[in-house]
Write a protein that binds this DNA or RNA. Sequence first.
DNA 1: CTTATATGATACTAAAGAGTATCACGTCAA
DNA 2: TTGACGTGATACTCTTTAGTATCATATAAG
Lengths: 101, 101
Amino acid sequence: MQAAFRALADPTRRDILTALSGGEMTVQQLTERFPMTRAAVKKHLVVLEDGGLLKSRKQGRETFNKLHPEGLKPVTDWLEYFDQFWDTHLASLQSALTKKD
Amino acid sequence: MQAAFRALADPTRRDILTALSGGEMTVQQLTERFPMTRAAVKKHLVVLEDGGLLKSRKQGRETFNKLHPEGLKPVTDWLEYFDQFWDTHLASLQSALTKKD
DNA sequence: CTTATATGATACTAAAGAGTATCACGTCAA
DNA sequence: TTGACGTGATACTCTTTAGTATCATATAAG
């Protein structure tokens, strides 16, 4: 879980995940979209993969990087605990649901 | 949003939020629960407040720190975008709804 | 075969982070 | 008033991190 939170802490890495939501991309394709060297992008990819948010697949001389959204589950699970203290939108939804009983 | 993600990246800060879910606490009370100095805890509190996850209230010589769950909204909003790429999304939504017995 | 392409890995630098020690100041209590 | 308590703030150290530059290797293309 720590690895996932840590991976999400960097804005570039979040942007990489957003970019990959359109489909898998090679390291080179990703590098073209970010104002940094390929080595820097590669490092971010390693951190993202460590956090379980990314899966890489090697094909020939290219490495395709693919979003792995399941890795977000530990994060959303942790955040969900706090929904009970948030009365703005979720508590009202809950009360609406319990009224239906 | 960056400040919130950054605040959540540290395990101690996440533990502080969990501790505060039981109610507001002073700096001293929090320090007693963590294996570090008061100055270190104070720094974490500043980061959490910068991220909008915490509100502090000064009363006399004490400062009470209170959870501010609304600050999690930018985070959950960002994460929700990826639900559409998550195969088990429907299943988890269903379990969340049926969980309300 | 030769060359260009795509990548991985390492060493290095500069900046940010987490933690401690310490000082100063306002507040509460005897 | 005196002293203890709770806190804020700063300077300092050590580690991590984001980024670059560079070298090495494997694959595709001519």
